[in-house]
Design a protein around this nucleic acid. Sequence first.
DNA 1: CTAAAATCTCAACCTTGGTTGAGGTCAACG
DNA 2: CGTTGACCTCAACCAAGGTTGAGATTTTAG
Lengths: 156, 156
Amino acid sequence: MKKSETIRVLQGLGVGQVAERSGVAVSTLHFYEEEGLIESWRNGGNHRRYSRDVLRRIAVIRVAQRAGVPLKEIAAALKTLPQGRTPNAKDWARLSAAWKAELDARIETLTRLRDELTGCIGCGCLSLKACPLRNPGDELAAGGSGPLLLSGSGET
Amino acid sequence: MKKSETIRVLQGLGVGQVAERSGVAVSTLHFYEEEGLIESWRNGGNHRRYSRDVLRRIAVIRVAQRAGVPLKEIAAALKTLPQGRTPNAKDWARLSAAWKAELDARIETLTRLRDELTGCIGCGCLSLKACPLRNPGDELAAGGSGPLLLSGSGET
DNA sequence: CTAAAATCTCAACCTTGGTTGAGGTCAACG
DNA sequence: CGTTGACCTCAACCAAGGTTGAGATTTTAG
Protein backbone atom coordinates (compact mmCIF):
# COMPACT_ATOMS: atom_id res chain seq x y z
CA MET A 1 0.00 0.00 0.00
CA LYS A 2 1.41 3.30 -1.01
CA LYS A 3 1.39 6.35 1.12
CA SER A 4 -0.33 8.39 -1.55
CA GLU A 5 -3.20 5.99 -1.58
CA THR A 6 -3.73 6.36 2.10
CA ILE A 7 -3.81 10.08 1.69
CA ARG A 8 -6.26 9.84 -1.13
CA VAL A 9 -8.52 7.65 0.90
CA LEU A 10 -8.52 10.21 3.62
CA GLN A 11 -9.59 12.79 1.08
CA GLY A 12 -12.17 10.69 -0.60
CA LEU A 13 -11.77 8.11 -3.31
CA GLY A 14 -10.74 8.91 -6.85
CA VAL A 15 -12.80 7.75 -9.75
CA GLY A 16 -10.27 5.11 -10.72
CA GLN A 17 -10.21 3.66 -7.26
CA VAL A 18 -13.95 3.49 -7.12
CA ALA A 19 -14.00 1.86 -10.52
CA GLU A 20 -11.54 -0.77 -9.50
CA ARG A 21 -13.12 -1.50 -6.18
CA SER A 22 -16.67 -1.56 -7.40
CA GLY A 23 -15.95 -3.39 -10.60
CA VAL A 24 -17.66 -0.84 -12.83
CA ALA A 25 -15.96 1.19 -15.54
CA VAL A 26 -15.01 4.81 -15.03
CA SER A 27 -17.34 5.76 -17.85
CA THR A 28 -20.13 4.02 -16.01
CA LEU A 29 -19.44 6.07 -12.92
CA HIS A 30 -19.70 9.24 -14.97
CA PHE A 31 -22.90 7.92 -16.43
CA TYR A 32 -24.36 7.05 -13.04
CA GLU A 33 -23.53 10.49 -11.83
CA GLU A 34 -25.31 12.11 -14.77
CA GLU A 35 -28.30 9.97 -14.02
CA GLY A 36 -28.31 11.04 -10.42
CA LEU A 37 -27.47 7.64 -9.00
CA ILE A 38 -24.31 8.67 -7.25
CA GLU A 39 -22.61 11.90 -6.41
CA SER A 40 -19.19 13.33 -5.88
CA TRP A 41 -17.43 16.55 -5.09
CA ARG A 42 -14.40 17.96 -6.82
CA ASN A 43 -10.88 18.47 -5.59
CA GLY A 44 -8.75 21.45 -6.53
CA GLY A 45 -7.92 20.00 -9.90
CA ASN A 46 -11.55 19.34 -10.86
CA HIS A 47 -11.17 15.64 -10.23
CA ARG A 48 -14.09 13.75 -8.75
CA ARG A 49 -13.89 12.65 -5.14
CA TYR A 50 -16.20 10.06 -3.69
CA SER A 51 -17.04 9.22 -0.16
CA ARG A 52 -16.71 5.62 0.87
CA ASP A 53 -20.46 5.17 0.83
CA VAL A 54 -20.45 5.33 -2.90
CA LEU A 55 -19.26 1.76 -2.93
CA ARG A 56 -22.33 0.71 -1.04
CA ARG A 57 -24.54 2.68 -3.35
CA ILE A 58 -22.98 1.03 -6.34
CA ALA A 59 -23.41 -2.37 -4.75
CA VAL A 60 -27.05 -1.53 -4.25
CA ILE A 61 -27.41 -0.37 -7.81
CA ARG A 62 -25.89 -3.53 -9.24
CA VAL A 63 -27.98 -5.77 -7.07
CA ALA A 64 -31.16 -3.93 -7.96
CA GLN A 65 -30.26 -4.15 -11.62
CA ARG A 66 -29.73 -7.85 -11.35
CA ALA A 67 -33.12 -8.03 -9.76
CA GLY A 68 -34.48 -6.35 -12.85
CA VAL A 69 -35.11 -2.87 -11.52
CA PRO A 70 -34.52 -0.20 -14.16
CA LEU A 71 -32.03 2.54 -13.39
CA LYS A 72 -34.66 5.22 -13.18
CA GLU A 73 -36.46 3.41 -10.44
CA ILE A 74 -33.24 2.78 -8.66
CA ALA A 75 -32.45 6.46 -8.88
CA ALA A 76 -35.86 7.32 -7.50
CA ALA A 77 -35.41 4.92 -4.62
CA LEU A 78 -31.96 6.24 -3.85
CA LYS A 79 -33.35 9.75 -3.71
CA THR A 80 -35.50 8.66 -0.79
CA LEU A 81 -32.37 8.13 1.25
CA PRO A 82 -31.74 10.88 3.77
CA GLN A 83 -29.46 13.49 2.41
CA GLY A 84 -27.14 15.18 4.79
CA ARG A 85 -26.16 12.06 6.62
CA THR A 86 -24.70 8.75 5.64
CA PRO A 87 -27.49 6.25 5.18
CA ASN A 88 -27.67 3.73 7.94
CA ALA A 89 -28.62 0.08 7.96
CA LYS A 90 -32.27 0.86 8.35
CA ASP A 91 -32.27 3.10 5.32
CA TRP A 92 -30.72 0.42 3.18
CA ALA A 93 -33.02 -2.19 4.61
CA ARG A 94 -36.02 -0.26 3.40
CA LEU A 95 -34.73 -0.33 -0.16
CA SER A 96 -33.72 -3.92 -0.09
CA ALA A 97 -37.08 -4.97 1.28
CA ALA A 98 -38.85 -3.15 -1.52
CA TRP A 99 -36.68 -4.75 -4.14
CA LYS A 100 -36.99 -8.15 -2.61
CA ALA A 101 -40.68 -7.88 -3.32
CA GLU A 102 -40.02 -7.09 -6.96
CA LEU A 103 -37.62 -9.93 -7.14
CA ASP A 104 -40.16 -12.28 -5.62
CA ALA A 105 -42.63 -11.22 -8.24
CA ARG A 106 -40.18 -11.79 -11.06
CA ILE A 107 -39.26 -15.20 -9.76
CA GLU A 108 -42.92 -16.00 -9.47
CA THR A 109 -43.57 -15.02 -13.04
CA LEU A 110 -40.65 -16.92 -14.43
CA THR A 111 -41.47 -19.95 -12.38
CA ARG A 112 -45.01 -19.97 -13.61
CA LEU A 113 -43.76 -19.58 -17.13
CA ARG A 114 -41.39 -22.49 -16.66
CA ASP A 115 -44.10 -24.69 -15.28
CA GLU A 116 -46.39 -23.91 -18.14
CA LEU A 117 -43.58 -24.56 -20.52
CA THR A 118 -42.78 -27.82 -18.83
CA GLY A 119 -46.39 -28.84 -18.95
CA CYS A 120 -46.49 -27.97 -22.59
CA ILE A 121 -43.32 -29.72 -23.63
CA GLY A 122 -45.35 -32.84 -24.07
CA CYS A 123 -47.13 -31.23 -26.93
CA GLY A 124 -44.37 -28.88 -27.83
CA CYS A 125 -46.62 -26.11 -28.97
CA LEU A 126 -45.62 -23.49 -26.43
CA SER A 127 -48.85 -21.76 -27.13
CA LEU A 128 -50.07 -22.03 -23.54
CA LYS A 129 -53.43 -20.47 -24.08
CA ALA A 130 -54.40 -22.25 -27.22
CA CYS A 131 -52.43 -25.44 -27.36
CA PRO A 132 -53.35 -27.11 -30.63
CA LEU A 133 -53.56 -30.47 -28.94
CA ARG A 134 -56.03 -29.30 -26.36
CA ASN A 135 -57.71 -26.76 -28.50
CA PRO A 136 -57.49 -28.35 -31.88
CA GLY A 137 -58.01 -26.39 -34.99
CA ASP A 138 -57.05 -23.02 -33.61
CA GLU A 139 -60.65 -22.04 -34.12
CA LEU A 140 -60.52 -19.77 -37.14
CA ALA A 141 -57.37 -21.14 -38.52
CA ALA A 142 -58.41 -24.76 -38.63
CA GLY A 143 -56.35 -26.69 -41.06
CA GLY A 144 -57.50 -29.82 -42.85
CA SER A 145 -60.65 -30.56 -40.96
CA GLY A 146 -61.81 -27.27 -39.66
CA PRO A 147 -64.73 -25.07 -40.59
CA LEU A 148 -64.06 -24.85 -44.22
CA LEU A 149 -66.59 -22.37 -45.30
CA LEU A 150 -65.90 -22.51 -48.90
CA SER A 151 -66.60 -19.53 -50.93
CA GLY A 152 -64.61 -19.66 -54.06
CA SER A 153 -63.08 -16.48 -55.34
CA GLY A 154 -59.46 -16.11 -55.62
CA GLU A 155 -56.90 -13.72 -54.48
CA THR A 156 -53.31 -13.76 -55.51
CA MET B 1 -67.44 -13.88 -39.15
CA LYS B 2 -67.79 -12.26 -42.49
CA LYS B 3 -67.57 -14.00 -45.76
CA SER B 4 -64.55 -12.03 -46.80
CA GLU B 5 -62.73 -13.19 -43.72
CA THR B 6 -63.40 -16.75 -44.54
CA ILE B 7 -61.92 -16.20 -47.91
CA ARG B 8 -58.91 -14.56 -46.49
CA VAL B 9 -58.34 -17.39 -44.10
CA LEU B 10 -58.27 -19.79 -46.95
CA GLN B 11 -55.64 -17.69 -48.63
CA GLY B 12 -53.50 -17.08 -45.62
CA LEU B 13 -53.82 -14.50 -42.93
CA GLY B 14 -53.33 -10.81 -43.52
CA VAL B 15 -50.94 -8.81 -41.42
CA GLY B 16 -53.73 -7.11 -39.53
CA GLN B 17 -55.36 -10.37 -38.68
CA VAL B 18 -52.13 -11.81 -37.43
CA ALA B 19 -51.53 -8.68 -35.40
CA GLU B 20 -54.91 -8.89 -33.80
CA ARG B 21 -54.78 -12.59 -33.12
CA SER B 22 -51.26 -12.64 -31.82
CA GLY B 23 -51.43 -9.43 -29.89
CA VAL B 24 -48.38 -7.86 -31.47
CA ALA B 25 -48.38 -4.66 -33.53
CA VAL B 26 -48.21 -4.71 -37.29
CA SER B 27 -44.94 -2.85 -37.13
CA THR B 28 -43.59 -5.60 -34.93
CA LEU B 29 -44.55 -8.21 -37.48
CA HIS B 30 -42.67 -6.31 -40.14
CA PHE B 31 -39.76 -6.08 -37.79
CA TYR B 32 -39.82 -9.79 -36.97
CA GLU B 33 -39.86 -10.55 -40.63
CA GLU B 34 -36.83 -8.39 -41.27
CA GLU B 35 -35.07 -10.17 -38.47
CA GLY B 36 -35.87 -13.51 -39.96
CA LEU B 37 -38.16 -14.64 -37.16
CA ILE B 38 -41.22 -15.17 -39.30
CA GLU B 39 -41.97 -15.27 -42.97
CA SER B 40 -44.75 -14.53 -45.38
CA TRP B 41 -45.54 -14.55 -49.05
CA ARG B 42 -47.24 -11.83 -51.03
CA ASN B 43 -50.56 -11.71 -52.72
CA GLY B 44 -51.16 -9.96 -56.02
CA GLY B 45 -51.32 -6.58 -54.38
CA ASN B 46 -48.01 -7.01 -52.59
CA HIS B 47 -49.70 -7.55 -49.28
CA ARG B 48 -48.22 -10.03 -46.86
CA ARG B 49 -49.92 -13.36 -46.38
CA TYR B 50 -49.13 -15.61 -43.46
CA SER B 51 -49.75 -19.26 -42.92
CA ARG B 52 -51.51 -20.26 -39.74
CA ASP B 53 -48.32 -21.49 -38.18
CA VAL B 54 -47.09 -17.98 -37.83
CA LEU B 55 -49.30 -17.66 -34.79
CA ARG B 56 -47.52 -20.52 -33.15
CA ARG B 57 -44.18 -19.08 -34.05
CA ILE B 58 -45.14 -15.77 -32.54
CA ALA B 59 -46.34 -17.50 -29.40
CA VAL B 60 -42.99 -19.21 -29.23
CA ILE B 61 -41.16 -15.97 -29.75
CA ARG B 62 -43.06 -14.20 -26.99
CA VAL B 63 -42.56 -17.02 -24.56
CA ALA B 64 -38.88 -17.20 -25.29
CA GLN B 65 -38.59 -13.47 -24.83
CA ARG B 66 -40.31 -13.68 -21.50
CA ALA B 67 -37.83 -16.33 -20.60
CA GLY B 68 -35.11 -13.84 -21.36
CA VAL B 69 -33.87 -15.20 -24.66
CA PRO B 70 -32.72 -12.43 -27.01
CA LEU B 71 -34.32 -12.22 -30.44
CA LYS B 72 -31.17 -13.26 -32.24
CA GLU B 73 -31.01 -16.50 -30.36
CA ILE B 74 -34.67 -17.07 -30.93
CA ALA B 75 -34.14 -16.50 -34.61
CA ALA B 76 -31.27 -18.94 -34.64
CA ALA B 77 -33.35 -21.56 -32.89
CA LEU B 78 -36.26 -21.06 -35.23
CA LYS B 79 -33.98 -21.59 -38.17
CA THR B 80 -33.33 -25.09 -36.93
CA LEU B 81 -36.95 -25.93 -37.58
CA PRO B 82 -37.48 -27.96 -40.71
CA GLN B 83 -38.25 -25.84 -43.66
CA GLY B 84 -40.56 -27.20 -46.24
CA ARG B 85 -42.99 -28.67 -43.80
CA THR B 86 -45.03 -27.35 -40.93
CA PRO B 87 -43.17 -27.95 -37.69
CA ASN B 88 -44.69 -30.68 -35.61
CA ALA B 89 -44.97 -31.13 -31.88
CA LYS B 90 -41.58 -32.75 -31.63
CA ASP B 91 -39.91 -29.84 -33.36
CA TRP B 92 -41.45 -27.37 -30.97
CA ALA B 93 -40.64 -29.60 -28.03
CA ARG B 94 -36.96 -29.45 -28.85
CA LEU B 95 -37.03 -25.67 -28.70
CA SER B 96 -39.04 -25.48 -25.55
CA ALA B 97 -36.78 -27.96 -23.81
CA ALA B 98 -33.74 -25.87 -24.65
CA TRP B 99 -35.34 -22.72 -23.39
CA LYS B 100 -36.60 -24.38 -20.27
CA ALA B 101 -32.99 -24.93 -19.37
CA GLU B 102 -32.21 -21.25 -19.80
CA LEU B 103 -35.21 -20.37 -17.79
CA ASP B 104 -34.16 -22.73 -15.03
CA ALA B 105 -30.80 -21.06 -14.93
CA ARG B 106 -32.32 -17.60 -14.72
CA ILE B 107 -34.63 -18.64 -11.97
CA GLU B 108 -31.71 -20.15 -10.13
CA THR B 109 -29.74 -16.95 -10.37
CA LEU B 110 -32.57 -14.75 -9.25
CA THR B 111 -33.43 -17.07 -6.43
CA ARG B 112 -29.90 -17.05 -5.18
CA LEU B 113 -29.88 -13.29 -5.41
CA ARG B 114 -33.09 -13.09 -3.46
CA ASP B 115 -31.80 -15.34 -0.76
CA GLU B 116 -28.66 -13.31 -0.40
CA LEU B 117 -30.72 -10.18 -0.30
CA THR B 118 -33.03 -11.67 2.27
CA GLY B 119 -30.09 -12.71 4.37
CA CYS B 120 -28.76 -9.21 4.17
CA ILE B 121 -31.91 -7.33 4.95
CA GLY B 122 -31.06 -7.74 8.59
CA CYS B 123 -28.16 -5.43 8.13
CA GLY B 124 -29.59 -3.58 5.20
CA CYS B 125 -26.34 -3.06 3.45
CA LEU B 126 -26.98 -5.11 0.36
CA SER B 127 -23.31 -5.45 -0.10
CA LEU B 128 -23.41 -9.21 0.23
CA LYS B 129 -19.70 -9.83 0.20
CA ALA B 130 -18.58 -7.00 2.35
CA CYS B 131 -21.37 -6.20 4.71
CA PRO B 132 -20.27 -3.26 6.83
CA LEU B 133 -21.71 -4.86 9.93
CA ARG B 134 -19.60 -7.92 9.50
CA ASN B 135 -16.72 -6.15 7.94
CA PRO B 136 -16.59 -2.91 9.87
CA GLY B 137 -14.68 0.06 8.66
CA ASP B 138 -14.69 -0.96 5.03
CA GLU B 139 -11.55 -2.93 5.67
CA LEU B 140 -10.89 -3.29 2.01
CA ALA B 141 -10.49 0.40 1.69
CA ALA B 142 -7.85 0.43 4.35
CA GLY B 143 -6.19 -2.88 3.70
CA GLY B 144 -6.46 -3.05 -0.02
CA SER B 145 -7.29 -6.73 -0.12
CA GLY B 146 -9.09 -7.08 -3.35
CA PRO B 147 -12.01 -5.53 -5.07
CA LEU B 148 -15.46 -6.33 -3.86
CA LEU B 149 -17.00 -7.72 -6.95
CA LEU B 150 -20.62 -8.25 -6.34
CA SER B 151 -21.21 -11.96 -6.09
CA GLY B 152 -19.66 -13.14 -9.28
CA SER B 153 -22.12 -15.23 -11.26
CA GLY B 154 -22.34 -13.08 -14.29
CA GLU B 155 -25.34 -13.14 -16.48
CA THR B 156 -25.41 -14.76 -19.81
C1' DC C 1 -67.87 4.13 -58.36
C1' DT C 2 -65.92 6.31 -54.61
C1' DA C 3 -64.20 7.05 -50.20
C1' DA C 4 -62.35 5.05 -46.22
C1' DA C 5 -59.50 1.58 -44.20
C1' DA C 6 -55.48 -1.48 -44.72
C1' DT C 7 -51.05 -2.19 -46.47
C1' DC C 8 -46.81 -1.17 -48.60
C1' DT C 9 -41.66 0.80 -48.31
C1' DC C 10 -38.13 3.28 -46.31
C1' DA C 11 -36.07 6.11 -43.23
C1' DA C 12 -35.92 8.39 -38.95
C1' DC C 13 -36.56 8.20 -34.23
C1' DC C 14 -37.04 6.28 -29.31
C1' DT C 15 -35.34 4.25 -24.71
C1' DT C 16 -31.96 1.73 -21.95
C1' DG C 17 -27.58 1.32 -20.40
C1' DG C 18 -23.71 2.28 -21.39
C1' DT C 19 -18.77 2.69 -24.40
C1' DT C 20 -15.45 5.18 -27.30
C1' DG C 21 -12.76 8.87 -28.83
C1' DA C 22 -10.85 13.59 -29.38
C1' DG C 23 -8.66 17.21 -27.35
C1' DG C 24 -7.07 19.17 -23.11
C1' DT C 25 -5.63 19.27 -17.90
C1' DC C 26 -3.67 17.32 -13.53
C1' DA C 27 -0.71 14.70 -10.69
C1' DA C 28 3.04 11.82 -9.39
C1' DC C 29 7.49 9.22 -10.15
C1' DG C 30 12.30 9.76 -10.98
C1' DC D 1 11.08 19.54 -14.57
C1' DG D 2 9.49 16.39 -17.75
C1' DT D 3 6.90 12.60 -19.10
C1' DT D 4 3.62 9.34 -18.33
C1' DG D 5 -0.75 7.99 -16.63
C1' DA D 6 -5.07 9.38 -14.54
C1' DC D 7 -8.68 12.54 -15.17
C1' DC D 8 -11.65 16.09 -17.36
C1' DT D 9 -15.70 17.40 -20.95
C1' DC D 10 -18.49 16.75 -24.68
C1' DA D 11 -20.25 14.41 -28.42
C1' DA D 12 -20.82 10.48 -31.08
C1' DC D 13 -21.78 5.82 -31.28
C1' DC D 14 -23.55 0.92 -30.12
C1' DA D 15 -27.13 -2.87 -29.56
C1' DA D 16 -31.67 -4.35 -28.63
C1' DG D 17 -36.29 -4.05 -29.67
C1' DG D 18 -39.27 -1.68 -31.56
C1' DT D 19 -42.38 2.73 -32.98
C1' DT D 20 -43.61 6.62 -35.95
C1' DG D 21 -44.37 9.05 -40.05
C1' DA D 22 -44.56 10.24 -45.04
C1' DG D 23 -46.13 9.18 -49.31
C1' DA D 24 -47.92 5.62 -52.46
C1' DT D 25 -50.95 1.63 -53.44
C1' DT D 26 -54.68 -1.82 -52.56
C1' DT D 27 -58.70 -3.55 -50.78
C1' DT D 28 -63.20 -3.18 -48.97
C1' DA D 29 -67.64 -1.11 -47.73
C1' DG D 30 -71.58 1.35 -49.11
